[in-house]
């Protein structure tokens, strides 16, 4: 029994840390812009495809493909922001950019559908087959890799936000954009930076998720729905809350699979979401923030 708990706990953390990578981007963008980015899902998908083609078509290594997906994601984030969102924001509308994110999402999905077709791709990595056994628990090298990469990335992001001038400026912009401008911070530059970081995380998340997803042009959507739930459970714009909520949702998934039924995962997760909205709409660790006001 303990073995099962431990085994499923590990599985949950692996899945959860992938969710965190995707959800962090949503939370960062929401924090700075108070805007939900529906196109985030498609950057996850494109990251997965970038890694897939790099390894399967060009014979590149899987480890390098994670970096490729990161760069592709970041570049896409920059492009989408510069070409579509920034001009709309300049016109001073709140609603237009939100609708535009839906438009961009549909456009990207259909572009991928045209290029890649609807049939799922099989993303094999050399690490999925290697199984390590410790005591009576098993895990693949892929899952160890996922945990190492996502923990490192989250740690780096946290250090960036906490200790660098730009990171502090980013937090300042998300707390009070106008006053940040008075400090000599160019908010547009930081919004761009946020999009790049968020999308790079999403692209990288895609490369790590690729092997476990049903890889179609709509693959990101299944992940993003959970990422939205995580962002809400963690408190919109709250980085620590998002990390905790992501791991929590991962654990709930794997224990639901073990003890109830895999088909119930979304019901349990979204029941938690509704419960949170009813009981603590400001998110998991909101209390600490409220004290600070």
């Amino acid at each position: 029994m303990l073995t099962v708990l431990l085994q499923q706990g590990i599985n949950g953390i692996v899945v959860g840390s992938l969710y965190v990578l995707v959800a962090l981007g949503l939370t960062l963008i929401y924090g700075v812009l108070v805007q939900i980015n529906f196109a985030h899902a498609d950057i996850v998908t494109l990251g997965a495809f970038a890694a897939y083609f790099f390894t399967h078509a060009f014979g590149g290594s899987y480890l390098a493909s994670i970096g490729i997906a990161l760069v592709v994601g970041g570049a896409l984030g920059w492009l989408i922001n510069a070409a579509i969102f920034a001009p709309l924001r300049d016109r001073g509308s709140e609603l237009l950019p939100l609708i535009a994110t839906i438009g961009v999402s549909i456009m990207l999905q259909n572009a991928m559908l045209a290029w890649f077709g609807p049939i799922p791709y099989a993303f094999d990595t050399p690490y999925s087959e290697h199984v390590i056994r410790i005591g009576s628990t098993f895990f693949t090298v892929q899952s160890v890799l996922i945990i190492i990469v996502s923990t490192t990335t989250i740690g780096l992001l946290y250090a960036f936000m906490k200790f660098t001038f730009l990171g502090k400026a980013l937090r300042a912009v998300s707390q009070d954009r106008e006053t940040a401008g008075l400090m000599g911070i160019n908010p547009n530059y930081l919004i761009m930076l946020t999009f790049v970081i968020a999308s790079a995380l999403a692209g990288m998340g895609g490369a790590l998720l690729g092997p476990v997803l049903v890889m179609t042009p709509f693959a990101g959507t299944s992940v993003i729905v959970k990422a939205f739930a995580i962002v809400i459970i963690g408190g919109f714009g709250n980085v620590e809350g998002t990390i905790i909520a992501g791991l929590l949702v991962g654990l709930i998934e794997s224990y639901t699979t073990q003890f109830l039924d895999p088909g119930l995962i979304d019901i349990v997760v979204f029941a938690l979401l509704l419960l949170m909205l009813a009981v603590r709409p400001t998110g998991l660790i909101a209390e600490k923030r409220e004290e600070n006001v």
Binding site: K168, R171, A172, D176, E178, L182, M183
Partner: peptide
């Protein structure tokens, strides 16, 4: 030109030191 805005508008979730650091953003 520096402005101390009405209602102070300090960044509530940054520490006092971090608030000061951001004031010197041009010397980052």
């Amino acid at each position: 030109i520096a402005l101390v805005p009405e209602g102070r508008r300090v960044f509530p979730f940054l520490t006092a030191r971090e608030n000061l650091e951001l004031g010197a953003f041009k010397y980052r």
